[in-house]
Design a protein around this nucleic acid. Sequence first.
DNA 1: GTCTATAAGATGATAGAC
DNA 2: GTCTATCATCTTATAGAC
Lengths: 185, 185
Amino acid sequence: MRESSVKEKLIGVAGRLFHKQGYNLTGINQVIEEADIARGSMYNHFQSKTDLLIAYLEQFQEEWFRSLEEFLRPITDPKKRLLALFEYRIRRQQRAEFSGCPFTKISAEIGNEEAEVLKTVQKFKDSVRSYIAGLVAQVKHRNILTNEALTEMIYLMMEGGLVSAAIYKNPGDLKRGKKIVEQFL
Amino acid sequence: MRESSVKEKLIGVAGRLFHKQGYNLTGINQVIEEADIARGSMYNHFQSKTDLLIAYLEQFQEEWFRSLEEFLRPITDPKKRLLALFEYRIRRQQRAEFSGCPFTKISAEIGNEEAEVLKTVQKFKDSVRSYIAGLVAQVKHRNILTNEALTEMIYLMMEGGLVSAAIYKNPGDLKRGKKIVEQFL
DNA sequence: GTCTATAAGATGATAGAC
DNA sequence: GTCTATCATCTTATAGAC
């Protein structure tokens, strides 16, 4: 097998399992078995399970934003783009059976000593927040709130909606959040 | 030891560890050792680790609302009571070193088959939402949003703020969320 | 680089003595 | 009801052959 495709396969399988079952409930054994790669090979490519986790998170972030850009490309109106960001998250949750935001989920699963993982999660959240701020800046909204406050509100309602989607296993709160945000644009 | 105090001690120790270290990262071994109770005794009181978890969550919910009522008792103005609910959560997060909402955290840690645990989490979230709705109903607010929408907004921003507190290990977003909510009251 | 065998310990849970 | 000894399995990670 190609050198890189071993890595890719491990990240792919591990990511799917981490996402679906949870990080702590997924053992290295299961990952290597389903990826059909030997234990030693895995540890040749990744120093530790944490290392594999971080590789997965970094790849996920890349894919997430790439896929978002694609989803928003046909939409030009900034208002509609902002609402489409909600829609993007709703659809991803539906496809993932409402497992919640993978980054948030991981942050709840890791131990207090895993500082690097937490930093990776923070980096993703920072990027999402910046993305929202960028869209808000382009919207000529109703000015009930400042740009900063509107950004904060949207970010928090999205985070809250994602948590709620995972807890109730439905997109209700995300959809209601989207509707409320719509009233401010 | 009194029959009930064995149970209480186990719930207390387990709860503290589940909260601080995470549920999956806390073994039964550590719980019984720190509680100074024999393995067999623990399984005499609780059928399983999941059983202990649910007992902890139920006790936590009881304590949480009892403590909230106490915190709000001196405040009469419904507006101030709503903002004090934010303050209550900020203070609890500060005391708990920003470990996030225990119920949300647990929902991210458990496996897909633990339906009863998820129901316990939902019950808590339902109660919080109802509590917010009750306060909103008493407020003569600025009517930018309906009571239902305002309740939803506050609930989602609070949930989002709690997640954010856990990820960034600071109360920034919870405080900013509180300020935004204030503008609607 | 890939593999198998194995280490060293932790996991949740049970059996059976007292 | 409380205890200790033990089960069977799983955990992450490493050593060393090829």
